[in-house]
Amino acid sequence: MATIDNSFKTNHTCLRVKDPQISTKFYEDNFGLKIYRTFPFPQFNFSLYMLCYNNPSSPYYNNMWADREGILELTHNYGTESDPNYTINNGNVEPHRGFGHICFSVDNIEEACNRLEKNGVKFQKKLTDGRQKDIAFALDPDGYWIELIEHGINKNIGKTDLTTYRLNHTMIRVKDPKKSLQFYKDVLGMKLFSTRVHEGAKFTLYFLGYDHDSNFVENEESKVNQAKRQSVLELTHNWGTESDPNFKGYHNGNAQPQGYGHICISMQNAEKFCNEIEEKFGDELNWSVKFNKGGLKNLAFIKDPDGYSIEIIPSWIFDGENKS
């Protein structure tokens, strides 16, 4: 296995957006995120907007953007904001299902939902809808689903504090959980936080990420503690897809019609990590771009068993280090 040190983090989730002005304002006003860095790449006709929680109480307050968890990367391809025919694939509509949602954990979910409703935010599922009364799903300007769960940190009755919010997880659907878990654990070095089986609805959820505590025990994370994390990866397996000959697989977000882009992991020595996994796994790996071989330098893109992209970057990367 490749060397997994304490610098490994799940850094960001990338979503394409139609109009960056509308989307950045939405996430700032409703979820308390702030633009931390903007990267214009006119030579490639797109810009990246890196949003995060940059509160002094954050453990990453003094870290560079790539050495953090909980970053939301909004990608804007120039011209989409004025194209009446351009739409985003939110990943939840057949036949292009794949990516499911991002999730924010909040201090007081009832008050958080009330605040969003007052702000005119639309909902896919309100707290009062359906059987699960402890989660809700809001919709962003492009129709992406945003799950809301409660972590209860500094909870006050009748109030919600945006500075306590966290970008908790990103959900993607997978065809075969055995293959996916093997990839994320054995190749990328993630750990399994918890597994939740929903027998009635015939699906299972697997939650993964990085934890460098020597006392951490896999697959025993409580729901409460997991809600306090950032940048968790949720794999959703709908039972039977792995053995269904008629199931053609999930949409990876990067094929047309596009929407979801990728998750990104960062570490101190990304080049060393890429070399190590390539040496160990060889042709078993599916690279979109090997490290430092693409138009943008100091990064790589690898694909998981379902074709979803994972970016790999060094945790020290900054504006001047990422030019073509």
Rank of each mutant, 00 (worst) to 15 (best):
M1G: 13
D5T: 01
S7E: 06
L15S: 04
R16F: 01
P20T: 11
I22Y: 09
I22S: 12
S23A: 15
N30G: 11
I35E: 14
T38K: 15
P40S: 13
N54H: 13
P56V: 12
E73H: 04
L74I: 15
H76C: 14
N77T: 14
S82G: 11
D83W: 07
D83K: 07
T87R: 13
I88S: 11
I88A: 10
N89E: 08
G100F: 03
F104Y: 01
Q124Y: 14
R131G: 14
E147F: 07
L148Q: 10
L148M: 13
E150R: 09
G152D: 13
L162A: 08
T163F: 01
R166W: 02
R173M: 11
V174K: 03
K175W: 05
K175P: 04
M190A: 01
K191L: 05
L192C: 03
V197M: 06
V197T: 12
T204L: 12
D211T: 04
D211P: 00
S214T: 13
K223G: 06
V224G: 07
S231M: 03
V232T: 13
T241W: 10
E242S: 09
P245D: 05
N246Q: 15
F247L: 01
N252K: 05
Q256G: 13
Q258C: 08
C264W: 05
S266T: 15
N269G: 03
A270L: 03
K272C: 03
E276L: 08
E276G: 09
E278Q: 15
D283N: 15
N286K: 13
W287P: 00
W287H: 03
L299Y: 02
F301H: 06
I302H: 00
W316V: 01
F318T: 12
G320W: 01
G320L: 04
